[in-house]
Write a protein that binds this DNA or RNA. Structure first.
Lengths: 610, 610
DNA sequence: TTCCTTTGCACCTACGTGATAATA
DNA sequence: AGTATTATCACGTAGGTGCAAAGG
């Protein structure tokens, strides 16, 4: 049933066309305005013209069987075992006001692309569930309903667009993506809520130009290992140590042995944990040295890290790692939320089982092994969730570890050296059902590092994000236009995005998918939103089991939510291709038109009115 | 006479078409091959298709007078006074094997672009004359004929392509360009000959895609201040001090007062110079502090640095700065070379006059002032050269200093912060004659930092660089094809440019303009070239007044030159637009088809057979 | 010798880390 | 008392400087 189509949450009102080519933009929302109407109209025409013309630029498909015409993208998560080690204890990513990188960084290896065709590769980070978490007694537990969502930003790989040949020639590294909790961020960093769980997603879009992005098919890949909880300070000591041991920038905190850990212990880090850590000290030495040797060598050698980590993880079972049962048990205040399958529920009674769930003893030379896992890491996770109560120590068929992920390891942080990794991994993703979906989140933003996002900005102020490359297309142009106008209208900020446009990572997808730099829609909404919260300055989402937008379908008083609501109805929803992978974009703040994806792993029951 | 057209050195054989749109690429050189012929042909079709289609993508010009349709690019050199300070003493740029940045970095401010149109901005560095230099008795002097040229590389600004609006919103900074003397460089750095004089050029190309580059009109801007001599170690102490005082990365060498200078003097740096420096010591303190205060503040305040530097430069007149007379006098072995007007000849008897020549006491608020200078810095320099013997202390009409260049100064080295500079400078370039030329050098290479060159690479293995956007178009497709084949054929290197393609700065324009990564044509030629030189390993161009390729028109025995010769005949030569600015690309190693530009400042008498 | 190039170095900038203390 | 956020810090990586000594 998890594989079945979800309830029809898609805005049927938006389905007006099945054309494979988009309608003229100006025709679809003729009154789009972010300033000068005529300018916008001309731009829209240009956009459409560019998009249609760009479509023609695709190389003609020859009947020959040359690999040049291959176009069956497969993606393999790089450093998957490293990710798994973090995930085992519940990955935490620090978010700061000034922006913090993810570690591990998301890296992917692509195959099956059309060598000649151009692709845009991007990632985004979406909420993994509807919960707020807290770290209590060395365990993560649900602590209420999720806070209102931040404006979603997509991070376009700075090399985009590039040919399939280019992408396949190296590991695609997204290490420059930065996370922040600053809702006023102007750098284009990805804005997340602290103490919330997120999932990284990877998208492959065949497009010659960012211009085409809204018209193109998204192929979305999700790896459950890249799930994490955003924190402002590390909670789980194990995560801290993994970061220290593996992140080159944290080398300064690596003690040669126990010194540093001693130091941490002397300070009595977390409640009753010190007992456990104390009684493991001799083990931890090997754990450290093992971690260091094993993970540092990830970049250039194959190590049997899975088995080793299995042998050393016996002491970690109660040491603050993800336990789904705990989450469900302890979340007394939010039982109705049903975090469900999207929470890590591998119920590792034995650590061996837990480690196994990430793929022990797989044949590292069999490129087919990774397919299912890579295909739908989420799907895998879903299976895990369902089976967690039944066969806890079972080894899911869908999970395995890529033992060759260490080909490009941590040493590859400098992109200048990244091309040294040969694309010898042909593992890829199987798309079992053959349907893919794309939802453009109402407040989604497209981010691109300074490297190439200028080509994004070059297309003009906005990008009409409408119509379909497949089944669905949007309609009700009038509503769209008005909602956009509302966004730009409420913005008290000057629309002089030139100043920001060349900055680090930042273009924005407007509520209807238009692209303009930086979250003006959100910025406009941010201050009024605080009227709902207590402080008028900035809504610091404190740990307070969620009281603001509980049930009310349309009482979303914050302009942010209001805007979201307005556009949720009209968000362009694409059903394209023949893949069951649906890009899930969280619309949790929209009570009525809850556009959940039906990408199984990320799918969870529709939010219930609490 | 300097303004008159130069002799018809252009390869008339190449002029076969006056079409404004290029011929189909496959039609023009149907046998282009760097591997699979069919692949190339398909690519070529695609290229042509893309180029023609891209042309359609240009926004329709409306009759309205909105600035959105403006398309009259004007360029202003940023930090011009800083450049002038260096130039006054003869700018030196260190080149190393591992690559060295230019300091000052080339920065430009653009106006008059079409906001909506996309532009590619790039710079290249071309030989300023045909001489080899030496630093003797604290003076630069000609020391023979120039060594064979290195493969030319163009450095495309990593933000390319971007909209005019984007470009105009900030100072375009090329600080990441790196210079090297390593002819085997694989990073895409610009390869220069040590002890040779070079000139930075800035090109504005309206193009939606790098694909279009070969078909597009180049608008070239030259600023005489950016002329420099490449060195492996600094020769002129004054330059060293200027670098130390102004380059943040050299802060470690800034003494608080005289300490460091004392140190340098104690070591007895250069011959009879110590006398002068000793007798200027108290002045130099103010010079230092003045330089530091004045140049460091360049990024955020307006200072009357020109006047100040004038008052402090009186002691420098004999201290190793550029004196054209010296050059002509001392260059005994190469009198026939006639370095002529392209050598800095401002004969500053009084430093006041010299400084004035870079624009003293101009109205910083008059945006029109900079026009002539910016237009043709070279032209300006040409004037200076002609007048140098007559009215040495005259203030040329064409020279002035942009006193607002300090709006973005050295603090702006991080591009993340560069958008803070408002585009308030509307100074621009006047193009007095109205003709522009573009020559694709046979060994020219297009370089692009890792940031976006992937979009270059994405277009495939090669880019047909043929045909015209204006007057001239190339012909003799058969010859072209054969010459290219020869290039790729002689290359013993595997054509696996995927590995390099995503690296730092590097795509190559093949001898006929095809783009492929890294100078395989040159690499192929490098080893055989050494057969002419004495060492079989690497042709270290030693200081030895030039004996290798003197007169012989076709005895260019080195494969490098051979290849150059082959392709010089067939190089696509564009005469486009209506500007007298010709892109001069040095073809000094080609004795017969000497394709000199007739951009006056850079134009110098045809090489005479010595 | 003289001139030029190369190499390793100390010293910077720039910025990515977790620790820490202060604060809420 | 427990939890969460923030600014500052020391300590790393990464890389851009000129210097000085060595080499050709």
């Amino acid at each position: 049933t998890m594989l079945a189509r979800p309830p029809p949450f898609f805005p049927v009102i938006a389905l007006t066309s099945h054309r494979s080519l988009p309608l003229p933009v100006a025709q679809r929302h003729p009154t789009l305005d972010l300033g000068n109407a005529e300018t916008i109209l001309r731009l829209s025409s240009l956009e459409h013209h560019a998009a249609t013309q760009s479509a023609k630029l695709r190389p003609p498909k020859t009947g020959a069987t040359e690999d040049a015409t291959e176009d069956d993208p497969k993606v393999n998560l790089e450093a998957k075992d490293l990710w798994a080690q973090f995930h085992k204890f519940g990955t935490e990513m620090v978010i700061t006001k000034s922006g913090r990188r993810m570690f591990p960084a998301f890296k992917a290896r692509c195959t099956g692309l059309n060598k000649m065709a151009k692709y845009i590769l991007l990632i985004d980070i979406v909420a993994a569930d509807e919960c707020r978490y807290k770290f209590h007694n060395s365990h993560w537990m649900v602590a209420g309903k999720a806070d209102p969502e931040m404006p979603k930003r997509m991070y376009i790989h700075p090399d985009s667009p590039a040919s399939g040949e280019q992408w396949m020639s190296k590991v695609v590294n997204f290490h420059k993506l930065k996370l922040t909790n600053n809702i006023l961020d102007k750098h284009g960093f990805t804005i997340l809520n602290s103490m919330h769980k997120y999932q990284v997603r990877f998208h492959v879009v065949r497009a010659n130009d960012i211009l085409q992005l809204p018209y193109c098919t998204f192929m979305t890949y999700v790896f459950s290992e890249t799930e994490f909880i955003a924190v402002t300070a590390y909670q789980n000591d194990k995560i801290t140590q993994l970061k220290i041991d593996n992140n080159p920038f944290a080398k300064g905190f690596r003690g040669t042995g126990n010194e540093r850990r001693e130091k941490r212990k002397q300070l009595g880090i977390n409640t009753q944990k010190s007992n456990e850590t104390r009684m493991q000290e001799d083990n931890e030495i090997s754990c450290d040295s093992l971690d260091e040797a094993q993970l540092k060598s990830e970049g250039n050698s194959k190590s049997s890290d899975v088995c080793e980590s299995a042998s050393e993880s016996s002491q970690e079972s109660k040491d603050g790692h993800y336990v789904g049962q705990d989450l469900r048990k302890i979340s007394t205040a939010t039982e109705k939320l049903k975090p469900g399958p999207n929470i890590i529920t591998a119920h590792c009674k034995t650590d061996r089982a837990l480690v196994d769930s990430f793929g022990p003893e797989t044949d590292p030379d069999n490129p087919k092994q990774d397919h299912v896992n890579a295909t739908t890491g989420g799907r895998t996770r879903c299976f895990r969730a369902e089976e967690s109560n039944a066969t806890e120590s079972n080894q899911p068929l869908t999970v395995e570890t890529d033992q060759r992920a260490h080909i490009t390891g941590l040493e590859c942080s400098n992109f200048l050296h990244c091309y040294s990794c040969p694309p010898d991994l042909t593992r890829y993703i199987i798309n079992p059902l053959g349907v893919a979906h794309r939802l453009l989140h109402p407040a989604a933003q497209v981010n691109m590092q300074g490297r190439t996002f200028s080509s994004v900005a070059a297309m003009g102020h906005r990008l009409a994000a409408v119509s379909s490359g497949g089944v669905c297309a949007m309609g009700t142009a009038g509503i769209l236009a008005s909602s956009l106008q509302r966004v730009s209208g409420t913005s008290g900020l000057p629309v002089n995005f030139q100043q920001h446009a060349m900055a680090s990572q930042g273009l924005t997808v407007s509520p209807i998918g238009g692209i303009f730099p930086y979250p003006y829609s959100y910025l406009a909404a941010a201050a009024p939103q605080s009227t709902t919260a207590s402080t008028p300055v900035r809504p610091r989402t404190r740990f307070r089991p969620y009281s603001i937008p509980n049930s009310v379908p349309d009482n979303c008083s914050t302009p942010l939510k209001s805007i979201h609501f307005k556009t949720d109805r009209d968000v362009n929803c694409y059903i394209f291709g023949n893949s069951p992978i649906a890009a899930r974009l969280d619309c949790r703040s929209t009570s009525e038109v809850n556009i959940n994806s039906f990408f199984e792993p990320l799918y969870f029951p529709t939010k219930q009115r609490v």
